[in-house]
Simulated assay, not measured.
Amino acid sequence: MPVTLAIAGLLFATGSNSARTDVDGGRQEELSGLVSQENRKVDAYDQQVERMQREVDRASRARARNDKVAARAQERSDELGRTVGLGPATGTGVRVTLDDAPRTEIGEGNIPPDYLVVHQQDVQAVVNAMWAGGATAVQVMDQRLISTSAVRCVGNTLLLNGRVYSPPFAVTAVGPTDRIAGSLEREPGIRVYKQYVKTYGLGYEVERLTEVTVPGYRGTLDLQFAESGR
Rank of each mutant, 00 (worst) to 15 (best):
M1A: 11
M1V: 11
M1L: 10
V3L: 14
I7F: 00
G9S: 04
L11N: 04
L11C: 01
G15T: 08
S16E: 07
S18D: 10
T21F: 10
T21L: 11
T21N: 13
E29W: 11
L31T: 12
S32E: 14
S36F: 09
E38T: 12
R40Y: 09
R40K: 14
K41V: 15
D43K: 11
Q47Y: 10
Q47G: 14
V49S: 11
R51H: 12
R54E: 13
E55S: 15
D57L: 07
D57P: 00
R65K: 12
R65M: 08
K68E: 15
V69R: 10
A70W: 00
A70Y: 04
A71H: 06
A71E: 10
A71P: 00
R72L: 15
E75L: 11
E75F: 06
E75R: 10
R76H: 12
S77A: 12
S77G: 01
G85T: 03
L86G: 08
G87Y: 15
P88G: 04
T92G: 15
L98E: 03
D100W: 02
P102G: 02
T104C: 05
E105N: 08
I106M: 14
I106D: 07
I106Y: 09
G107M: 13
G107Q: 14
P113M: 06
D114I: 11
L116F: 05
L116R: 08
V117F: 05
V117D: 00
V118L: 05
V118H: 05
H119N: 12
Q120R: 10
V123M: 08
A125R: 01
A125W: 02
V126I: 08
N128P: 03
M130R: 06
M130T: 06
W131V: 06
W131Y: 13
G133A: 01
G133F: 02
G133K: 01
G134K: 03
V138W: 00
Q139F: 03
V140F: 03
M141T: 12
M141Y: 05
D142E: 15
I146H: 04
S147K: 09
T148C: 04
S149D: 02
V151A: 01
C153H: 02
V154D: 04
G155L: 04
L159G: 06
R163I: 05
V164E: 10
P167H: 03
P168H: 02
V174I: 01
G182M: 00
S183M: 03
R186I: 06
E187P: 07
E187V: 07
P188C: 08
I190A: 07
R191A: 11
Q195M: 10
Y196L: 13
Y196K: 14
V197F: 05
V197C: 05
K198A: 15
Y200F: 15
G201V: 04
R208G: 07
L209M: 10
T210R: 10
V212W: 02
T213D: 00
V214L: 07
P215I: 07
G216C: 07
R218F: 09
R218V: 13
R218A: 15
L221N: 08
A226M: 08
S228R: 13
G229T: 14
